[in-house]
Design a protein around this nucleic acid. Structure first.
Length: 272
DNA sequence: CGCCAGGCCTGCACGC
DNA sequence: TGCGTGCAGGCCTGGC
């Protein structure tokens, strides 16, 4: 499943192949994504030019001269560049084809992803305007975190997974970041003070940055933008490691549930 | 074959 | 009653 590092890798992967190109057509095979692809989008995109590609949270923004495509990969989505026509698979729901013959192909077996469109500034789009800070930007610091969680009685793990607190931290990296910060996932958020807020922010940044550097670790169904398989490193400290020995201290990694999501932690390394 | 994973929006339940 | 907050439900399908 693409988390922020995978989305960033995908964005970097497609960017050089589509910026500056003119769109031949949008070919939609199945409109039924998380929100149906709006009717008539094909017409709006015809002969548009791609100006730039950006990322906000887990959304990929394809800026065109006629408006902005907003792409979300959901849990099983991927984008890749094809240099020539290839027979589409069962879950290849749309293609964006270019005048030079190349194709940006979207695949998403579970259809939790989305293709949205705005002719406004994309930062004003309803899906984007209420998002919290980007984890890798300097604006996301311990004060920003503390200001958003200081009143909360809910577990810190839930807070860092909330998009209003910080974007791009899904279940895998929430578990990993809390391990790196030495904080038990069920710690009540408002009990995380200054020192631990600093540690947690640093841990989130390190965890995400190193995953991006590694080329995007992920679950099975992630393909890199060029179509080769992702690295599938899965050398996580705690995520998916229930019952195994902690790589740092040797204690057994515990697994539990937090609001219906799987949670992993080392009870020796992580304190409440 | 039944269940689970995952992101994230929506709607409900709860407490002041 | 109203509001903020927390949390469960639902979407979907491949893989165990």
């Amino acid at each position: 499943m693409p988390e922020l590092p995978e989305v960033e890798i995908t964005k970097r992967g497609i960017e050089p192949h589509i910026v500056g190109k003119r769109i031949r057509e949008l070919l939609v095979r199945d409109r039924r994504l998380r929100w149906p692809i709006e009717k008539g989008l094909e017409k709006k995109l015809k002969a548009s030019k791609v100006l730039s590609v950006a990322r906000r949270a887990k959304y990929i923004l394809v800026n065109c001269d006629s408006g902005c495509l907003i792409i979300h990969l959901g849990m099983s989505g991927s984008l890749r560049i094809l240099s020539e026509t290839q027979k589409p698979g069962k879950h290849d729901h749309f293609d964006l084809t270019f005048e030079d013959g190349s194709i940006l192909r979207y695949r998403d077996p579970r259809r939790f992803g989305a293709l949205l469109w705005t002719e406004d500034n994309p930062s004003l789009h309803p899906r984007i305007k209420n998002l919290g800070p980007e984890p890798l930007e300097s604006k996301f610091d311990w004060r920003a975190l503390r200001d958003r969680i200081s009143g909360s009685e809910s577990p810190i793990k839930l807070q860092i997974m909330k998009n209003e607190v910080v974007v791009g931290v899904g279940n895998i990296y929430a578990n990993e970041s809390l391990f790196r910060a030495g904080i038990h996932p069920h710690t009540i958020a408002k009990k995380v003070g200054t020192i631990r807020s600093k540690r947690l922010v640093a841990a989130i940044k390190e965890t995400l940055a190193s995953a991006i550097e590694a080329g995007g670790s992920s679950l099975r169904d992630f393909y890199q933008a060029d179509g080769t398989k992702g690295y599938f490193q899965q050398n996580y400290f705690v995520y998916g490691q229930g019952g195994k020995s902690c790589r740092v201290c040797g204690h057994t990694i515990r697994s539990t549930t937090t609001s219906q999501r799987s949670t992993f932690f080392c009870s020796n390394c992580q304190k409440r």
